[in-house]
Amino acid sequence: MRKQLPPEMLARDSRFVRTSIMDQILDPRNRKISERTIGPAKLAPGRPASADRARNLMHGIFTGEIQALEGAGRTMFDFDETEAPFALKLDMARQCWDEARHVEISIKLGEWMGTEIGEFTEATFLYEAACAPDPVLRLCGVNRALEGLAIDVFNTMKEFGDVSGDPVLEFCEDWMLADEVTHVKMGSDWLRRLTADDPERLERALDFQRTVDKLFSLGGFRGETDENPVHLARKLREMAGFSTTEIDEIAELSELARAEGKAAVEAAGSA
């Protein structure tokens, strides 16, 4: 088995269809949609087409969980024990089990919401964070950035379930949130341990995380304003070990990503 599996080699059955973020950014409709603001973009039951938007996001969570499972699995295999200590591998194995359960939960939730496996396309940008050649960078990319995003998304979906009175959605998201908080903590602990004597490595890892966090803000998908469908879950992030400064920084990165996304849409429209 080869080490370092690139995203294009992720194995999927015939139901899955892959898409790229660029296709979405270059969609000529984006520019026109931005002229149609009709209120807060946050995903909530009282917003237009909320059911289909929730189904779509739930499918995104499902494919994201598959990629998180694959990323944790690869971290165990790609590195020997001089690069990834035995105890780190044990934590990654535990994360594999958790992510496998999240995939199961997501499939069941998808069924509950009337969504078929593969109904929506899959982008592999989440797994890309798990392709860094340094395990510390992977921990920052996967356990802190990806799992941090998962906290934000699950919290949004949990609120959606709560407000809509959907007992299954609220129940499942709450359980998954509990695991994700653990995974973020795990990432933060290992980041400290592995870089205790190497401040430069720590800085490289945090830089990588900033890049990934900006990427995961998806041009305004996640943030703290009315224009963001998914909001930063500050309290849960604090519980997971993020400092207020770190959360503020993610909020700033999200805002920057939104502005850049808007500029990219305008540039694509005028090209």
Binding site: P45, S50, A51, D52, A54, R55, E111, W112, M113, G114, T115, E116, S164, G165, D166, P167, V168
Partner: peptide, 16 residues
Amino acid sequence: IREPRRRYVYRLECGF
């Protein structure tokens, strides 16, 4: 027709 999708949209508006 994707009946489960219709049922979910319905429940969201009419109650679980």
